[in-house]
Amino acid sequence: ENVFHPVECSYCHSESMMGFRYRCQQCHNYQLCQDCFWRGHAGGSHSNQHQMKEYTSWKS
């Protein structure tokens, strides 16, 4: 089941984030949609070496 997250992806700027959401544990307010995370995208001061937390629902 695809879950809708009402936040913007920090890389592709999609405002309709579906599926899993990934939030960086080091960068303030840096979040990736499932597609950008799986493709290994990073931007700004974010590094792929940073720990990311996976969210499967909006409330989590």
Rank of each mutant, 00 (worst) to 15 (best):
Gln51Arg: 10
Met17Asp: 12
His5Leu: 08
Gly44Met: 03
Gly44Trp: 02
Lys59Val: 08
Ala42Leu: 04
Arg39Asn: 13
Cys9Tyr: 00
Cys12Glu: 00
Thr56Cys: 13
Cys36His: 01
Cys12Pro: 00
Glu15Leu: 09
His5Lys: 10
Trp58Ser: 12
Cys27Leu: 00
Thr56Asn: 10
His28Arg: 11
Met18Val: 14
Gln25Ile: 06
Gln51Glu: 13
His13Arg: 09
Gln26Phe: 04
Ser16Trp: 06
His50Arg: 01
Gly40Asp: 07
His41Met: 11
Phe37His: 08
Ser16Asp: 11
Gln26Lys: 04
Arg23Glu: 12
His46Gln: 04
Asn2Ile: 13
Met52Trp: 03
Ser47Phe: 03
Glu15Gly: 08
Asp35Ala: 08
Ser16Ala: 10
Gly40Pro: 05
Gly40Arg: 06
Gly19Gln: 12
Met18Arg: 14
Gln26Leu: 04
Lys59Asp: 15
Cys12Asp: 00
Tyr11Phe: 12
Val3Cys: 14
Phe37Ile: 09
Cys9Val: 00
Glu8Lys: 05
His13Ser: 08
Ser60Phe: 12
Lys53Leu: 08
Ser60Leu: 06
His28Trp: 07
Asn48Tyr: 04
His28Cys: 08
Glu1Pro: 09
Cys33Thr: 00
Pro6Ser: 10
Arg23Cys: 15
Ser47Ile: 05
Gln49Leu: 11
Met17Val: 11
Gln26His: 04
Phe20Pro: 15
Tyr11Asp: 04
His50Met: 02
Phe4Leu: 10
His41Ala: 11
Leu32Gln: 03
Ser14Lys: 10
Met52Ala: 02
Tyr22Trp: 09
Ala42Pro: 03
Leu32Cys: 12
Lys53Glu: 10
His50Lys: 03
His5Asn: 15
Gly40Ile: 05
Met18Ile: 10
Ser45Trp: 04
Met18Phe: 14
Arg23Asn: 12
His46Ile: 03
Cys27Pro: 02
Trp58Gly: 15
Cys36Asp: 01
Arg39Asp: 09
Thr56Phe: 01
His46Pro: 05
His28Tyr: 09
Cys9Ser: 00
Cys36Ser: 00
Asp35Gly: 05
Cys24Asn: 01
Lys59Met: 09
Arg21Ala: 11
Gln51Tyr: 13
Asn48His: 06
Tyr30Asp: 02
Ser14Trp: 03
Met17Lys: 14
His46Asn: 04
Asn48Met: 07
His13Phe: 05
Ser60Pro: 09
Tyr11Ile: 06
Ser10Asn: 06
His46Phe: 02
Gly19Ser: 13
Gln26Thr: 11
Asn2Arg: 08
His28Ala: 14
Asn48Gly: 10
Val7Glu: 11
Trp38Ser: 15
Gly43Ser: 13
Trp58Gln: 08
Asn48Phe: 05
Phe4Pro: 08
Cys36Ala: 00
Arg39Trp: 04
Tyr22Asp: 01
Tyr11Pro: 01
Asn2Phe: 08
Leu32Ile: 14
Glu15Arg: 12
Tyr22Leu: 04
Glu8Val: 04
His13Ile: 03
Ser16Phe: 09
Met52Arg: 01
Glu15Asn: 12
Ser14Thr: 10
Ser10Leu: 01
His5Trp: 07
Gln51Asp: 14
Tyr11Met: 09
Ser10His: 15
Tyr22Met: 07
Gly44Thr: 05
Gly44Phe: 00
Glu1Thr: 07
Ser16Glu: 10
Ser10Phe: 04
Ser14Phe: 01
Asp35Gln: 06
Phe37Trp: 09
Glu1Met: 03
Glu8Gly: 12
Gly43His: 08
Cys12Ile: 00
Cys9Pro: 00
Ser60Thr: 11
Gln31Val: 13
Gln51Trp: 02
Thr56Lys: 13
Cys27Met: 01
Ser57Ala: 13
Gly19Cys: 06
Trp38Val: 14
Trp38Ala: 15
Trp58Val: 15
Ser14Gly: 08
Gln25Lys: 11
Lys59Arg: 11
His28Ile: 12
Val7Gln: 11
Cys33His: 01
Leu32Ala: 01
Cys12Ser: 00
Arg23Asp: 10
Gly44Ile: 01
Cys9Phe: 00
Tyr22Thr: 03
Trp58Cys: 11
His46Trp: 03
Gln34Trp: 02
Cys27Ser: 01
Gln31Ala: 09
Lys53Ser: 08
His50Phe: 01
Glu15Lys: 10
His5Asp: 10
Cys24Pro: 00
Phe37Asn: 03
Phe20Arg: 15
Cys33Phe: 01
Tyr30Glu: 03
Glu15Phe: 07
Phe20Tyr: 12
Lys59Glu: 08
Glu15Trp: 08
Tyr22Cys: 03
Tyr22Ser: 03
Tyr55Met: 14
Tyr11Gln: 05
Gln31Met: 06
Met17Ile: 12
Leu32Thr: 12
His46Glu: 06
Gln51Ser: 13
Thr56Ser: 14
Cys9Glu: 00
Phe20Cys: 14
Trp58Pro: 15
Ser14Val: 13
Val7Arg: 10
Lys53Arg: 08
Cys36Gln: 01
Lys53Pro: 02
Met18Trp: 05
Arg23Ser: 13
Ser47Pro: 06
Cys33Asn: 02
Met18His: 15
Gln49Pro: 05
Val7Pro: 11
Asn29Gly: 09
Tyr22Phe: 05
His41Lys: 13
Cys36Val: 00
Gly19Ile: 05
Ser16Lys: 11
Ser57Asp: 13
Ala42Asn: 09
Phe4Tyr: 13
Glu1Lys: 05
Trp58Tyr: 14
Cys24Trp: 00
Cys12Val: 00
Asn2Ala: 13
His41Gly: 04
Gln51Gly: 05
Tyr30Asn: 02
Asn2Trp: 04
Cys12Gly: 01
His13Asn: 06
Ser57Leu: 07
Phe20Leu: 14
Ser60Ala: 03
Ser60His: 14
Cys12Tyr: 00
Gln34Val: 06
Met18Leu: 13
Met17Trp: 09
Glu54Thr: 15
Cys24Met: 01
Val3Ser: 14
Arg21Trp: 10
Tyr22Gln: 01
Glu15Gln: 13
Met52Cys: 06
Met52Pro: 02
Ser10Trp: 01
Val3Asn: 14
Tyr30Val: 06
Val7Ser: 11
Asp35Val: 09
Phe4Asn: 12
Glu15Pro: 14
Ser57Val: 11
Tyr55Gly: 09
Glu54Arg: 04
His13Ala: 08
Phe20Ala: 15
Tyr22Pro: 00
Met18Gly: 13
Gln49Trp: 04
Thr56Leu: 02
Asn2Lys: 11
Asp35Phe: 15
Gly44Ala: 03
Tyr30Cys: 02
Trp58Ala: 15
Cys24Ser: 00
Glu15Asp: 15
Tyr22Glu: 01
